[in-house]
Design a protein around this nucleic acid. Structure first.
Lengths: 342, 342
DNA sequence: TTGTACGCGTTATCAT
DNA sequence: ATGATAACGCGTACAA
């Protein structure tokens, strides 16, 4: 029989070849300072020439961590969430953490299941991306609380009061209020608020919209606060929704949307109706994503500081993991980025 | 001292509490058939009431796998790549594999580093998403070959002849050729080909464009085969590029693009120039992504079967992992999805 | 500075 | 059907 050349190298092989104990090899591996210069050099050379790599599982077992963070999001292909995941992964990697991605869908069951799965894989922390992870009922969020009993839980775009849960979000209320006020001040009389979800974040935006009307002493009509149930990427559906509204007599001279994609639909709706933007119809989007720049004219949109939020989130997480006391909530404020649609 | 209530439960605790050996507990855990019904029930009940979860690291060490697949992509927030990652993650999850996401950027060094990292984390396989992972030189691809010596490597949108490397891609050449021919047959005289990358895939598209011209006996002019170096999401930059071209006398009545985002830029360019689409200018995109539906009119685009490709890729991978012999290359053919831009 | 020996929590191979 | 015990590969007290 040939010696098994394919067997993976272990610390023992290096130990043998370099004539030191495995302890010393381990020390070299982990950059311990109390190793003689020459010994260290010798061991390192052996490791290099044999092509040794430490076994991550064994390490994980001993240290009880594999430096992996779980990232949960409903749909990592959503324009906005994709950016968030990208920024987060990038920051984690720079700090030597890997990212285990779990797309959960928008249903509660899927989210619970995914988080449980991450726990069972023993990730060091979980990051929940998107306000969809905040359920309306206390009961609906229980699984998050449970998870937080084991590992730190970070939330992007949601706020929650559980121990070991850290939240980073944007003041959607104020941003939407400000955007709406701007439209009012520009003379818009019939402003429509259009949303496509009922998340925590969506509710705050809606409240901001209403607050603006109230502050400016404008009537608040439920008919002008709309929820459009089409698929999240179904622009055609949203256009039809607006069309129906319009034909039902609910006409408008401005639209405030909860997502850029709805603003895109509004711009296309205007094109279809022969309405001129911004003269006949003004449109404001939300997220300041790529979608705000694809139409003619481009869309004025609320920048909700995604990159800074992600950076903050990861930084907070790293500090929490190293035992530092950190703020449970970080709130950013948005900014209206002006383009041609208002 | 209190007994350590916080210590994680092990198979020993269950063993003790249920009065059987750890071997039996392990058997129950893994659904072995040779366990007495009652024993099994008893052990399961103990596990449930104590809230036991097996330690994934220990399992990994023993079985030499944690059922994790590494997904590499240059930029997971790119509209197209994000969808690919999403589809792949979904399929993997359905088959009980987790996804370790690594965004590498478009530089060779980043890709090498990321793949090495995945190897060191002992993933069961690596999936390279996007044709950017195919370098022009043999040398540039060596790191892939090395990785494949250890684990199966799957490539989406690229083709390569290495052992243990499996490729799934679309016939971009034929699809682009067909799209171009359609424009010629519709009477377009001056067709521009616009690309924003020089990947394997981009080259095949370009070749298809040229082949169409040749087959229809049209002159092939380098002036009409263009590479636009602006950022991948920089629509404004692409518009300026087209504007400059136009002003330099390189006018056109149709554009074939290598990516939907360039087609979006083309549509916006037309709006800016006062050209009517499709009358004065016809536009064809590539990928049939969300971006093909955001403009007015919407963009005719090549559907390159992303979802079917991802499904095929994961299926192939799973089979490879279970030792079956599988095709090294799977080629899909694209389809032109007709919308208002031609 | 270096080496010995044990623990980490499983799975798997033997016996019985 | 069940139990004892040896891997799995590493980190680290403790000893020298």
């Amino acid at each position: 029989m040939m010696p098994d050349k394919n067997r993976k190298l272990t610390i023992y092989d290096i130990s043998e070849k370099s004539g030191v104990s495995i302890a010393t090899v381990s020390r070299v591996l982990n950059g311990a300072t109390n190793v003689k210069r020459e010994t260290k050099a010798a061991v390192e050379s052996v490791m290099r020439e044999m092509g040794y790599t430490p076994n991550a599982f064994a390490r994980g077992l001993g240290l009880d961590t594999m430096k992996t963070i779980g990232i949960l999001c409903a749909d990592s292909s959503d324009t906005y969430l994709a950016k968030a995941v990208y920024y987060i992964e990038e920051q984690l990697r720079e700090n030597n953490y890997d990212s285990l991605l779990c797309c959960t869908g928008y249903e509660a069951a899927g989210k619970r299941k995914a988080l449980d799965l991450l726990l069972s894989k023993k990730v060091d922390a979980a990051i929940l991306v998107g306000s969809t992870f905040l359920e309306a009922s206390e009961r609906g969020n229980k699984y998050i609380n449970c998870a937080a009993a084991q590992i730190p839980v970070m939330m992007l775009n949601a706020s929650m009061d559980y121990p070991n849960v850290y939240c980073v979000f944007c003041d959607d209320y104020a941003a939407t209020k400000q955007a709406t006020e701007r439209l009012i001040d520009r003379g818009c009389k019939k402003i429509l608020y259009l949303s496509n979800s009922k998340t925590y974040s969506a509710k705050k935006k809606r409240a901001g919209f209403i607050a603006a009307l109230e502050e400016r002493r404008r009537p608040v009509s439920e008919a002008y606060i709309r929820y459009c149930e089409t698929g999240r990427e179904d622009i055609t559906g949203a256009i039809e929704y607006l069309d129906k509204l319009w034909n039902d007599g609910i006409t408008f001279d401005a639209i405030v949307t909860a997502e850029d994609i709805l603003a895109v639909a509004a711009v296309k709706f205007a094109a279809k109706k022969g309405l001129s933007i911004p003269k006949d119809l003004k449109v404001i989007g939300y997220n300041n994503s790529l979608l705000a720049t694809v139409t003619s004219p481009e869309i004025t949109s609320v920048d909700n500081r995604l990159k800074p939020m992600c950076d903050q989130l990861v930084e907070t997480l790293l500090n929490v993991l190293s035992g530092r006391e950190m703020p449970k909530k970080c709130e950013f404020s948005g900014e209206l980025v002006i383009r041609g649609s208002i």
